[in-house]
Write a protein that binds this DNA or RNA. Structure first.
Length: 288
DNA sequence: CGTTGAACCTGTTTGC
DNA sequence: TGCAAACAGGTTCAAC
């Protein structure tokens, strides 16, 4: 479930419930997805939640010492494929695969749920946080047209792989990569560095519009997951390419196809999104 | 550098 | 109906 819009939805929900609250106690279940479970048990109780931020697909829960003192680092959370983080009333029934409970000073508790445990959770100092987040690429919603073009062209790989590379852009995953490529009419196997400035501009705009709309609709929870506020994301109904193999393209009526690019299912319209032109073999570039 | 496939773990969907 | 295979929103690592 979690790409940029889904993580943003989780962050907004958590921010409303948790900022300003003090963490009273911590209880942990399975901990194999945590860098250091002991550090979480020691580092959270008594700390106040100062802010909840998103950086790409990461969630940063900033902490301060009890009496409004100095920064006490942050809890870094990545939701992986099936992770979820939200505040619940203590009497709310528990969902399966809940692995962490953080009791707050208002009686509610933040719970982390993750069936597959591909997620990650770790206590971070400011330095560790910088080392972790520093290498990430640009935020898709903030990157300029110029920087986007440069970044897309900086890699010698297919555009689908480039979009998924968190060191180029942060936050784009398989669904929104396919959706933006469909919207911009770009084939996923085109080489990123071969896109024209005009195509790159169209892709950036498509990605931006799709992400903003998905955030408005609270993401694309494909499963029947319901968040702490009781509302499922609705964007999945808007998907034009992702998951639509064999169905008609909403734009031209051709049949949507599924191929594997960069090891991931990739859905596209073979008519709207033209394939890459096969380049001549390298050795033949210059005959003799 | 880039690509591919496997691995991590569990649940759901699809196919015979 | 039952069971097994295929597949899943992410990331990382080895091997080529």
């Amino acid at each position: 479930m979690p790409e940029l819009p889904e993580v943003e939805t989780v962050v907004r929900g958590l921010r409303g419930a948790a900022v300003g609250r003090r963490i009273v106690s911590v209880r942990l279940g399975k901990t194999d997805f945590m860098d250091d479970a002991g550090a979480i048990e020691e580092g959270l109780p008594g700390r106040r939640i100062e802010a909840v931020e998103r950086c790409g697909k990461f969630i940063v829960v900033r902490l301060v010492a009890e009496r409004g003192g100095a920064s006490a680092g942050a809890l870094l959370v990545h939701l992986g494929m099936t992770g979820h983080l939200a505040a619940w009333a203590a009497e709310q029934p528990e969902r399966k695969h809940t692995h962490a409970w953080f009791a707050l000073d208002d009686g509610r508790e933040i719970r982390y749920t993750d069936a597959r445990r591909f997620g990650r959770m770790a206590m971070m100092t400011e330095d560790a946080l910088a080392r972790e987040l520093g290498p990430l690429g640009a935020e898709p919603l903030e990157v300029s047209e110029e920087e986007f073009f440069l970044r897309i062209g900086s890699r010698r790989a297919r555009i689908k792989a480039v979009l998924l590379d968190q060191h180029v852009l942060r936050g784009v995953g398989n669904i929104y990569a396919d959706e933006s490529l469909w919207r911009a009419r770009i084939h996923p196997e085109r080489m990123g560095a071969r896109l024209s400035a005009k195509e790159a501009a169209a892709l950036r705009r498509a990605l931006r519009e799709i992400l903003l709309r998905a955030i408005e609709l609270r993401g694309s929870s494909i499963s029947d997951y319901v968040d702490g506020e009781g509302e499922p994301g609705e964007y999945q109904r808007r998907h034009k390419a992702y998951g639509r193999e064999g169905k008609a393209c909403a734009r031209c009526g051709a049949v949507i196809r599924r191929i594997v690019v960069a090891g991931r299912s990739s859905f596209f319209c073979p008519r709207c999104q033209r394939g890459p032109r096969k380049s001549a073999a390298k050795g033949l570039r210059r005959k003799r």
